[in-house]
């Protein structure tokens, strides 16, 4: 069991990592943020599940990070991010992240009323990740960034769903989806060079 005093810091850290994913254009920082984000997810999920079951999310998430990192390692930078970001872009993304965070704060309170099974902290954590994941998806069409957004969104959903569904099968299936997304991201990143290699 994770101590209760870690839950609120996990929510705050989830917001920081999701914002970092939104703002950062360095893939190493993005992968690191995603890996930390999965730690936050496990802390929040462990309120509903035993720690050993919740650890499935961490294992799947870190494996996903490893798969994407391996694929990104040999890619030229322009294939990954398409250049750096301007100050105005970063400021815009930060403001958007703060607004999404505020939305998550108000939405989380309502969510507890609709789904009484979840705690307020879980509601905040999941809403933050869902809101920032959706925001991320709305700001990019690059495969790597899109998969980061999808993984963030799914992490938020998994916190929510863990509170209402404790099936091992669904935990396994969601882990397969997480890994599958990472593998597809790796495939989409390396696909342009695959034909030449063969």
């Amino acid at each position: 069991m994770i101590p209760d005093f870690l839950i609120l810091p996990a929510v705050i850290l989830a917001f920081i990592t999701a914002t970092s994913l939104l703002v950062s254009w360095n893939w190493r920082l993005s992968i690191f943020s995603l890996a930390i984000q999965y730690v936050c997810v496990v802390v929040l999920v462990s309120s509903s599940w035993p720690l050993e079951t919740a650890a499935v999310k961490l294992v799947a998430g870190w494996m996903a990070c490893a798969v994407m990192a391996l694929a990104l390692r040999n890619q030229p930078d322009d294939l990954i991010v398409g250049g750096g970001r301007s100050i105005s872009d970063i400021v815009f993304r930060l403001i958007a992240a703060v607004m999404a965070g505020l939305f998550a704060f108000t939405g989380g309170t309502r969510l507890v009323l609709w789904l009484p099974e979840i705690s307020v902290e879980q509601a905040y954590g999941s809403m933050i990740l869902i809101a920032l994941g959706l925001l991320h998806l709305g700001l990019t069409n690059h495969p790597f960034r899109v998969v980061l957004g999808l993984l963030t969104l799914l992490s938020g959903f998994e916190i929510l769903y863990a509170a209402v569904e404790s099936s091992i099968l669904i935990a396994g299936l969601l882990a397969i989806v997480t890994l599958g997304l990472a593998i597809i991201c790796a495939y989409l990143l390396t696909a342009p060079t695959l034909e030449e290699a063969s």
Partner: peptide, 13 residues
């Protein structure tokens, strides 16, 4: 997810 590789074949972005 399984359908993505044949919709976006190797050799193309």
């Amino acid at each position: 997810l399984a359908s993505i590789p044949f919709l976006s074949p190797p050799g193309a972005r």
